[in-house]
Simulated scan of single mutants.
Amino acid sequence: MTFTIAALVPSLLNTNGDAENAAVLAQRLRWAGHEARIVAVEDAADLPAHVDAVIVGSGSDSTLEPARARLLTMHDELRRWGTEGVPILSIGTGWELLSWGIETADGGIVEGLAVLPGRAVPRAEGGRITGDLVVRSPRFGHLVGFENHAREYVQAEASPLGRIVAGEGNGRGSSQEGVVMGWVLGTHLHGPVLAKNPALADAMLTEMATRAGVAYEPGEQTAVVDAFAAEARAAQLKAAGVALPA
């Protein structure tokens, strides 16, 4: 079979290369002996008949409204995918657009698609949060990446992706990062996150394969690439002053 990975609105939601998480999934599937294709979905007219995973990357505030308008054309599909258990990875403003809504620094409100709980609000202290981000997730282990955002995330404290080890994450003193609802994931982790965190990528791929009724076993080339990822992770953890248990 051929796995189909949909990258939603990549022309507007790929500021940090986060739409390329789709390429990570597709390549790991090919190394495992499966066929995979990536479909760039700019609006509902581009939607394939079936998807196995969905990536929603990050954009800039200048693209919030046009990106929201395009995602809104796929609102029913996003809700259905989330209910059915299709893995959906959303990052940065892409995640915020799937929330209840976004409050902007000038007092405006951008209504979200309400696929995920919580909302994005301006930082209480002002300014941007930038730097290394390390998260301990009960489902996916330690995750690394970098964060770059001017908003904090509230009202989703019951369902975080994980706890902060280094960085700010959702902010407001929550010590939490991201939000999870089933297989719908929202995070501030850029990188792209799946390239830096193979365990998270393989967890998504295993779920995709299980849903399709086939097996997923990482291929030989995957081990070579994962060794590079391990070195990058070790360097970032050291820079962030994080020592993991042996």
Rank of each mutant, 00 (worst) to 15 (best):
V9Q: 03
E20W: 11
N16K: 10
R28V: 04
L12F: 06
E20Y: 15
L8F: 08
A32W: 00
L29M: 05
N16P: 01
L13H: 07
S11Y: 00
S11E: 13
N21T: 05
G33C: 07
L12C: 07
G33F: 05
G17P: 11
L13G: 02
E35D: 15
N16I: 04
A26P: 06
A7Q: 00
H34M: 03
E35A: 15
V24N: 01
E35M: 13
A6V: 10
L13E: 03
I5M: 02
L12A: 05
F3H: 04
A6K: 06
L25P: 03
H34Q: 10
T2G: 04
V24M: 04
N21E: 05
F3I: 00
I5A: 07
L12W: 08
A32Y: 07
P10M: 12
L29Y: 02
V24T: 12
L8C: 10
W31A: 03
L13C: 02
E20R: 13
Q27W: 05
A6R: 09
L13N: 05
L12N: 09
I5L: 06
R30N: 10
N21Y: 11
N14F: 07
A7T: 06
A26V: 10
W31F: 15
E20V: 08
G33R: 11
A7Y: 08
P10Y: 12
V24W: 01
W31L: 12
A32N: 06
E35T: 12
R28N: 00
L13P: 04
